[in-house]
Write a protein that binds this DNA or RNA. Structure first.
Lengths: 352, 352
DNA sequence: CTCCAGATTTGAATCGATTCAATTTATTCA
DNA sequence: TGAATAAATTGAATCGATTCAAATCTGGAG
């Protein structure tokens, strides 16, 4: 319709009021006399004015009223990965409630990511640091906007981050199984270091670059220790959280002379793959083998049997992250949130 | 760090060049002499300048370089609903490739939605009109930005929209089953009108407000007609695409004296629920009952047996939609895209 | 040594609103 | 009726960049 776009100034002139008043009509209607307000509004309507341009408003007012969620992944990651989805769903809930916009920022390619972060119109960032967190943090810092890192695999305390209690959670998971009577365990781990798959040794794990996985392993060890199970005897297989590597891990664990009666999976994704694999092999879950996951993604509650897992409080994480970014109250040091055991059908006492 | 933010003007002054030159250093580096450029850059670095503020740039340059995807749903919808997810994954792919940002805009509540749409910093919108499309289109129009409606349930040709060939696709689906030899069908429909669940009559369907469902029904009728199956004899049960209503529909269809050997589901979601229900009843798919879906969501390929379905070309839809919005080349009238039959394990010839 | 085209720089105008001190108008109260 | 006070309106400054016509600088040809 309207060719040369109508500006607030045009409306003001046409209505015979000052620009200041015209502005007030839209952004603080209460301050202008009803009569005048109606008249300006009417004029605006007649001219086809689309309302105050966000661009102009933005410049003056400063706040975009939107936050960006960033990851070193293709954009589709946000819709494909169960953990990311669960988190984003929670973040969007919070944003919804506070009338904040949500922008998705990501790219697998560093250069593009750089540009995307530089040009995202947001007031701050939530960083999904599952992978490539360092890069992400660095890029974001340059932007000089508030940000908070989630699932950061780095214990650099100068990075404002919110993470879950991986060590404590893993300990609870292991204790749960041990208390049910299990004594023969197998661990399917998420990455300890880049591009490595296969059985992982103790020394290797202790100096793993990915702290998430390392802490979960430490948690398992610590809890099992109390039941007299020494870490040297606990088989740990490192996967990359995908089907082939998980199945390779299962082959490895179940080809042992005394196969495990319980699987400690470092992610729900791994746990779910595990249950499928066991089923296909004719093993019953939890009768023959118990499985416990980690994360608490919704999918875990929708399968049969339900997945016992350590649930991250997504809502709480999202709440704090959004608050931190919006109010520029980033945690000065890493903040930690607890996880809670959700017992569903995938764990039970071992067979006699 | 830097308290009072540094502006381009500050850098220019500190470097002893004009603001114009300083601007060029950042946005058209090639035009300024290397020596000067280096000096300005160095000065900027020293001052802790974060680069040209997007806000200022935006005002002058005009383009946000981002599109908004909007729906009349809670924000979490984008991460929960399989169809929305599949579509968004495709849209993000396209955006990724063209360096365009993606903003999620939604709210179940009309007032909030209004505000969210008004205040989204985007160059245009893609509207997910599965539900409440009319409202959405109306709100978006006020914003005077390019937009394109997807899955619009309204045949108003003045609305720029991209939709799939529901009638043709449904016909192909029905023909596929008929050609396999099926003669006893049951239809599980998506909504024909608001808040109605239960068996749907012909007259009712013909004047249904949701054109998507209506056209799919018409497609089924048309194809089956060619096989001598009259529409009066085809049981159609209207669901709201959720578990309870689908199961009620199945109870209805299978309590008939001659239960169907093939189910025509108007969405993959319904089809997937159907397969689960049949399984739980001890009926084998496809041996006892064939099931065909509609949409082609990824989940359909990940279950056992795989779901036969009419696949929407998500990538193509996304491509066109993004192009249309970005280049303001909205289809002047509704544009239609074909769907294609994907045969997987859930359909087969009926038992003798 | 002068002149000129081409390469760089400059400075001011502009984008479209918001904001606030100052001014004008309306209302209240003695 | 007039002063004091409150409410509404104005106008200019401002946000932080980009843009472009005009001014200045170069180097090479004549």
């Amino acid at each position: 319709m309207a060719k040369g776009t109508i500006r607030l100034a045009d409306v003001a002139k046409a209505a015979g009021v000052s620009q200041g008043t015209a502005s007030n009509v839209f952004s603080r209607p209460d301050v202008v006399r009803e009569e005048v307000r109606e008249h300006v509004l009417e004029t605006a309507r007649r001219l086809g004015y689309a309302g105050p341009s966000l661009k102009g408003r933005l410049l003056r007012a400063g706040k975009v009223n939107a936050i960006g969620v960033a990851a070193v992944e293709p954009l589709a990651y946000f819709f494909d990965d169960p953990w990311a989805r669960a988190l984003l769903a929670a973040v969007s809930q919070v944003c919804d409630a506070s009338g904040t916009g949500l922008a998705l920022v990501s790219a697998k390619d560093r250069h593009k990511l750089d540009w995307n972060i530089k040009s995202a119109l947001v007031d701050g960032f939530i960083l999904l640091c599952v992978e490539g967190g360092e890069k992400l943090v660095q890029l974001t810092r340059e932007r000089q906007l508030p940000f908070v890192a989630l699932a950061l695999n780095d214990e650099d305390s100068s990075i404002p981050s919110i993470s879950v209690d991986n060590l404590g959670g893993a300990a609870v998971a292991a204790r749960h199984l041990a208390e049910l009577g299990h004594r023969r365990f197998g661990v399917l781990a998420t990455e300890f270091s880049d591009d490595h798959v296969g059985p992982a040794g103790i020394a290797e794990i202790e100096r793993a670059i990915y702290s998430t996985s390392r802490n979960r392993a430490l948690g398992y060890w610590q809890a099992l220790d109390a039941f007299g199970i020494r870490r040297e005897t606990l088989p740990i297989y490192e996967t990359i959280n995908d089907k082939p590597s998980v199945e390779a891990g299962l082959e490895y664990l179940f080809s042992a002379p005394e196969p495990p009666t319980a699987i400690l999976a470092m992610s729900d994704n791994i746990a779910l793959l595990t249950i499928n694999w066991l089923r296909a092999r004719g093993l019953s879950v939890p009768r023959d083998v118990s499985v416990i996951g980690f994360d608490g993604v919704p999918e875990g509650g929708m399968v049969e049997p339900g997945l016992t897992t350590m649930a991250q409080p997504f809502a709480e994480i999202a709440q704090r992250a959004v608050q931190a970014v919006l109010h520029d109250s980033m945690p000065t040091e890493g903040e930690m949130i607890g996880v809670s055991l959700i017992v569903r059908g995938s764990t039970a006492a071992p067979k006699q």
